[in-house]
């Protein structure tokens, strides 16, 4: 008998093994949901999959009676717009400040403690402040995402840039590089793969802040819808919406990973050799 650590599944088995837990959970849900229905025909907690499909079909294809929009798609568009603007702004801030803090000792001395303190402010605690300052519109939701993840990106990128071997920095100077050129051609490209990784890690928190903001004050959005139908115990909408958000987040994560490997192949050399 071989040791367990030496048993490596083939590619077919791997896919099967990956699907297995999902199928098990789905089966479990179907069985439990059917049992609850049998005991109480009016049960709302675990609606059968057919019911969820009907609700989603209605939300995805029939225009809303009040607004005339296709609810699922308008919710998704509104949420993604906030998410992308927030992630984009946070990435820009992270890059600019991360490069400055990582390369310039003066900037680091002046700003690093501030960033370290700011990153400890719980973003949800200042959400009321954001609503008061920026109003209940789109801006406050985007700002919440930015405040939530930008400090992490700044610190992570500053550390990445500071970890570039000093030999490279000295070498660039002996090749005649100015500070600006060094930032642009040596530090920025080497920070990019880490930025993509940090953005992937930030997707979870970004969605957390997005849905929190939407739950409290919004007129559309995935989080808004979930918290709206909660009043009617409409699990047939909530559960598919959660699955939909999860799917979006998973695809975004996968896309970022693909883009990073395409765009910066030199950053993943160790990985391909493994």
């Amino acid at each position: 008998m071989r040791r367990a650590i030496n048993i490596v599944p083939g590619s077919g088995t791997r896919i099967l093994l990956a699907l297995l837990p999902f199928l098990l959970i789905a089966c479990l849900y179907v069985v439990v949901s059917a049992e609850r229905r049998a005991a109480n025909p009016g049960d709302k907690l675990l609606p059968p999959i057919t019911e969820m499909a009907t609700s989603m079909d209605r939300l995805a294809t029939e225009p809303d009676r009040r607004s005339g929009d296709l609810t699922l798609w308008s919710d998704t568009a509104a949420s993604l717009r906030r998410l992308f603007i927030g992630l984009g702004a946070a990435a820009a801030i992270g890059l600019v400040l991360g490069l400055a803090l990582g390369l310039l000792p003066v900037a680091s001395a002046g700003l690093s403690p501030l960033v370290a303190v700011m990153s400890m402010i719980p973003p949800m605690a200042i959400l009321p402040v954001l609503f008061i300052v920026f109003g209940l519109g789109e801006l406050s939701k985007v700002v919440l995402i930015v405040i939530g993840i930008a400090p992490f990106l700044v610190r992570d990128l500053a550390m990445t840039v500071a970890a570039i071997p000093s030999e490279q920095i000295v070498k660039a100077q002996t090749l005649g590089a100015s500070t600006w050129q060094l930032m642009l051609r040596v530090a920025l490209p080497q920070a990019m793969p880490r930025l993509m990784e940090a953005l992937r890690l930030s997707l979870g928190p970004a969605f957390l802040f997005l849905i929190s903001a939407e739950a409290i004050a919004a007129e559309s959005g995935l989080g808004y819808r979930i918290f709206l139908v909660r009043r009617y115990l409409a699990m047939d909408v909530i559960l598919p919406y959660v699955a939909w958000i999860t799917l979006i987040a998973y695809v975004l994560d996968w896309l970022l990973a693909r883009i990073a490997r395409r765009g910066f192949p030199w950053g993943y050399v160790q990985e391909t050799r493994r």
């Binding site: 071997p165 030999e167 490279q168 000295v170 070498k171 660039a172 002996t174 090749l175 005649g176 040596v186 490209p189 080497q190 910066f264 030199w266 950053g267």
Partner: peptide, 15 residues
């Protein structure tokens, strides 16, 4: 730029 250098390691740009 008037003084060039070659270190033991990390002298070239990996990107």
């Amino acid at each position: 730029p008037d003084r060039g250098v070659v270190f033991q390691r990390y002298s070239v740009f990996p990107h």
